[in-house]
């Protein structure tokens, strides 16, 4: 009997979480994945941050000033978070949405009402509105705090381009539900393109670009046509906007975002004194 009690005690001790933890942490599998081990010293912390592909985007140490909300309002971070969430929900939506005339509207409707977790569509839409607001606030903040001044002027330009890309993403995404609001909004928006100087067939200067009677900038070859893929908002516009919205613009925006964030680190981190 006594042996049995002892044996029990021994087994429990061997199975205690601490011992199990130790065992795991010394195994080869574990060590091949987590090279540094638990970051319990500053040196270890630095090694983890520098050695991990995801974490090395962050600086190892962050200044006190960098975590002060009242300076940055975290707008840039929120914008990026929204971008990620939009990418994720957008990807999920791509499983159900078909950019054709027959299906665009009904697919959105089905997403809202039929598809389980079709609330992704709502999240995506609201997130899009929130991202546009956040990105404007971010720009406002950067301006107000003078963070565009040298050496940060190139980053400011990249940021402006990102702003334009965000607005373009919003514009292209707006057409995709293919309801009255979408079609007419894009019609009005794209109609502006035809009044562009030189590049639009109703703009000033386009009449000058012709050889005799042959007009080179006409309603089949001006910027508006390029944007819509046609002379009116129809099948071609829908497909074109879908590709831009899901592939083209996000790729370019991602690329520029990488530059944007790298520049921030290089220029001394977030919200440091100038």
């Amino acid at each position: 009997m006594a042996n049995f009690k002892d044996w029990l005690k021994e087994t429990f001790k061997a199975l205690s979480p601490a011992r199990v933890g130790e065992y795991i942490q010394e195994s080869q599998v574990y060590r091949s994945i987590f090279r540094v081990g638990v970051p319990d010293s500053d040196r270890k912390r630095m090694l983890v941050m520098l050695g991990n592909v995801f974490l090395h985007l962050h600086p190892v140490k962050v200044r006190k000033s960098g975590i002060r909300m009242r300076y940055t309002w975290c707008m840039g971070g929120i914008t990026f978070f929204l971008f990620l969430s939009l990418t994720f929900t957008g990807l999920l939506l791509m499983f159900y949405y078909r950019p054709t005339l027959e299906y665009a509207y009904v697919d959105i409707r089905d997403l809202r009402e039929q598809v389980p977790l079709g609330i992704m569509r709502e999240i995506h839409r609201w997130g899009a509105h929130a991202m546009v607001i956040a990105v404007w606030l971010h720009m406002y903040r950067v301006f107000m705090t003078g963070s565009y001044k040298p050496p940060r002027e190139f980053n400011w330009n990249v940021g402006v381009i990102l702003l334009v890309l965000t607005l373009l993403l919003s514009f292209t995404g707006y057409l995709l539900p293919w309801d009255q609001l979408a079609i007419w909004a894009i019609t009005v928006g794209s109609n502006m393109a035809r009044a562009t100087p030189f590049a639009g067939h109703e703009g000033p200067g386009s009449a000058l670009l012709k050889l005799g009677d042959i007009a080179f900038v006409n309603n089949q070859s001006d910027m508006r046509f390029a944007l819509l893929g046609g002379r009116f908002v129809g099948e071609a516009a829908l497909l074109r906007f879908y590709v831009l919205h899901c592939v083209g613009l996000p790729l370019v925006a991602g690329f520029l975002m990488a530059i944007h964030f790298w520049r921030i680190r290089r220029d001394g981190g977030i919200s440091g004194p100038l």
Binding site: L101, E102, Y103, Y105, V106, G234, E235
Partner: peptide, 10 residues
């Protein structure tokens, strides 16, 4: 009957 297209009923 929808604008520009006839879509099947579900």
């Amino acid at each position: 009957d929808q604008p520009f297209k006839a879509i099947p009923r579900v």
